[in-house]
Every structure is written in structure tokens, then in C-alpha cells.
Simulated assay, not measured.
Amino acid sequence: MSDDGLIKVKYVQRQKAADGSDLLYFRKGGYREGPLKAAFGTQALQDEVKLILDRIAKVELANSTPRPGTVGGMLKAYRKSSEFLTLAQITRSGYDDYIEEQIADIGDVLLGEVTRSWIIGLRDAWALRGHNAANKRMQVLKNALAPAILDEKDTRIDGDPFHKVAKVKRPHAAGEANPAWQDYEVTAAIEDAIARDTPGLARAIALGRYGGFRRGTICNLPLHARTKGYDKHGDPERRLYWLTEKRIVLADKREDARLIDVIARTPNRAFTVAYNANGMKWKERQLNQAIERLMDRLARAGKVRAATDEDGKVYCPLTIHGLRHARGVELALAGASDSEIMSQLEQTSEAAAKIYRRQANRRKLADAAQDKIDNVIEIQRRGKAKNAG
């Protein structure tokens, strides 16, 4: 309230009428309404403005809420579906960002306008942001529109617009996303972590390489998941028994002797097997950063493979997921079947297992070819030595 007893009301402007009286108008942004009925500086004017603001807020809310029969409406419904709610927390979090973005960008598109050519155009536009991000956005949209596509009574979407729409391919120059670690690199990383008094990081690396666990399970695997069991001969053995974090698949397997060794050499400092420098369980992003710092330092020291970025800075291209790939290739090289690989890595489909087997077969064939070359070189060497003698 001002000194003259008048109530100050925001968004009100005064203008002089032809007869000299005051006309009051409401203005907020591009919205204008008036002349207002109440007198300037009164409680009645404040109440009148409040009613206008409430009405504007309702309109803005209605405009921001996806309408039924639109892509935005399907995205909003997908977020509340059991399919979405049963996803892993980290997956839901990532999908949430894509859903918000798509509601803002394409939320007003009517379902009848969703065609294969529209989907392809959208995919190509998203491809500019990177192949992985584009494919994830496509998957979220496909999941959200699935009920309308599969419902035979719902004719708003004609057929399956995603049919024969290929994913965005990884650029050839990008290289392998998560290259498998070599054994010398695993050893270098574990020994460096122990030497620097970060035993929980050494354990995390060992769980990925010798347990084949995903990052989420590495961060959350509790000490009591290491159980005592008995082998087929009745001898005691250490086993890992736990529901994995992402796929909620039961891990029930004998613990690798190399993992047992790393855990035996390091102390228990948390209720989880792996832990951060503060003796607390790892957060996934925190573990990523710790692995990156460790491997970049080892790359600069020439102890693990190295690459150079656009600025000429040396870094290590290895990621924590590459530890799981190393375990998968190792299993395939040992002759494990697809089902055995799936059981070891807690997978629900054979797709990844087949990839590991193909990688292992290529390595075997490449090594066999090199053996033949070595044999030819050895024969030539012996021939030259014989002629020289």
C-alpha cells in the first residue's frame, strides 16, 4: 500500500479518456485486457486483476498439457505406464529428459499425422545430435506410440510407421564405443588403485572384469551377495547371488578366483563390495569419473592404450562397460555357449552373446592366419640358414 492509502496493483496501467477520466488496463507480456471496472488503488481492482491472472494461468496450463490424440498425449501416458515404471531408475531418468524434450518439440502433432515419412524425417533431424542419442529418442517415441499402433480399433495411426525404419548407424570414424580391456590394462588399473589407497576402486574394476557386472550392479552389490556354497564334489566355494540392477536378473554363479584374490587383498570398508574414497557406495557417475581419471593418468604414463583428442590431449578410450565386454569375449574364447555367456552376464537375450562369439571367432581366425604366416617365415629362415651354411 502506498503512502496515500492506495493499494498498488501490478500489471495495471492508467490512460486518460477523452473526458479526462482514468481508464485502467491490464497488461502482462503480450496480453491486454480492459478497461477494468474497479477504481484505481482499491481492493476491488486487486481482486479483479487476480481473477484475470487465474484465468491466464488456466489457459497456459491447458496449452502446456498434451491433448488426447496427440504425440504429446501418448508420451505423457507412457510416462505413467507400468512398462515405464518398471524400467531401471537410471533408464527412467534418461527417458524422462527425452520425453520432456519431445512433448515440447512434437507434442502437438496429431496421431493421424504420424507416418513413416514423418518418422524418417524426425530420425534424420535427431541424427545430427549423434547416432546414440537419436536411436534412444526413437526408442522412447516408439514405446510411447506402441499402444495406438497395436490397437486394431484405433485407426488414428495408419499401420506401423516404424516398420523398416533403420536405426542411425554409428559413424565409421567413431571407432568402437566400449572397447574390451586387455589383461595388462586391467592389472595396471587394479594395482595402481591399490597403490594409491583406493581399494574400493580396485574392487569395482575387478567386479566388472571378473564378474562381468554392469555399472549399476558394481555400485550396489552388497557384501552379503558373496555367499558360501558347495561345488558338485561337496567342497566349499564362494558364490555371487544377487538380483542385478538393470534387468533384474538373478546372478547365481561361482566367484572367479581372480576376483576373490582382489577382494582378499583389499579391506571391507562399506556394506557394498566396492566403495568410494569415503567408504560409501559408489554413485554411477562418480564411478565413471574415477575410472576416467585413473585410466587417463595411466595412458599418459604409457601403461595402457592411449588416444589423442582434437586438442592434442592424451586420454584413454577405455570405459567401465568395456570391462564387461572383456569378460564376454573371454567367455566366448573359452568356448562358452550363448546360453552360458547369457547366464554369466545376466543377459535376457542372445544378441550380445552372439556378438561376443563373433568377436572371439574373428580373433581366433586372425591368430590362426598369423600362425600360418609365422610358419612360412620360419621355413624361409631355415632355408636361408641352410644355404648360407
Results as ranks from 00 to 15, higher is better:
R92H: 12
G107I: 07
K76H: 06
R92Q: 15
I103M: 08
L87W: 02
K76Y: 06
D97E: 13
Y98S: 09
L85S: 10
T86N: 13
I106L: 04
I99W: 01
G107M: 11
G94D: 15
Y95R: 08
G107P: 01
S82Y: 03
D105A: 12
Q102A: 10
G107N: 11
D105G: 01
K76D: 14
T86E: 13
A104R: 15
F84W: 08
E100G: 08
D97H: 07
S93C: 06
L75W: 01
L75D: 02
L87Q: 14
I106V: 08
S82P: 01
D96H: 12
L87D: 03
Q102M: 15
D96N: 14
D105P: 00
T86D: 12
A77H: 06
L75M: 02
S81M: 12
L87S: 03
D105S: 08
R79H: 03
D97F: 03
A104L: 12
Y78D: 10
D96I: 11
K80M: 14
D108G: 04
I90G: 04
D108E: 14
T86G: 05
L85K: 15
Q89W: 04
E101K: 13
I106Y: 02
S81W: 03
Q89K: 12
E101C: 02
D105C: 01
Y78I: 04
D108P: 09
G107L: 10
D105F: 01
E100C: 03
D105N: 10
L85C: 04
Y95C: 01
S81T: 09
R79W: 06
I99C: 01
Q89M: 06
E100M: 02
K80Y: 13
E83C: 03
S82Q: 13
Q89F: 06
D105K: 11
L87M: 14
T86C: 10
F84T: 05
G107H: 07
I103E: 06
L85F: 04
L85E: 14
S93H: 05
E83K: 09
A104Q: 14
A77I: 03
R79F: 07
Y95P: 00
D97R: 08
A104F: 02
S93N: 09
Q102N: 14
T91Y: 14
I103P: 00
S93I: 13
T91L: 13
S82I: 12
I103H: 02
Y95S: 01
S82T: 10
I90K: 14
T86Y: 07
I99M: 06
E100R: 09
A88Y: 07
Y98T: 07
L87P: 00
K76W: 05
A104W: 06
A104Y: 05
R79T: 09
Q102R: 12
L87C: 08
I90C: 10
R92Y: 06
R79P: 00
I99F: 00
S93M: 12
K80Q: 15
R92E: 15
I99T: 02
I99H: 00
T91S: 15
Q89R: 11
K80S: 11
Y95A: 01
D108N: 15
E101H: 04
Y98N: 07
K76M: 14
S81I: 03
I99L: 01
Y95Q: 04
D96K: 11
R79S: 09
G107W: 07
D108W: 05
E83T: 08
E101F: 04
I99P: 00
Q102V: 13
I103T: 05
T91G: 11
I99E: 01
I103V: 14
E100I: 06
L75A: 02
D108L: 12
E100A: 07
R92K: 15
Y98K: 11
A77V: 09
E101A: 08
Y78N: 07
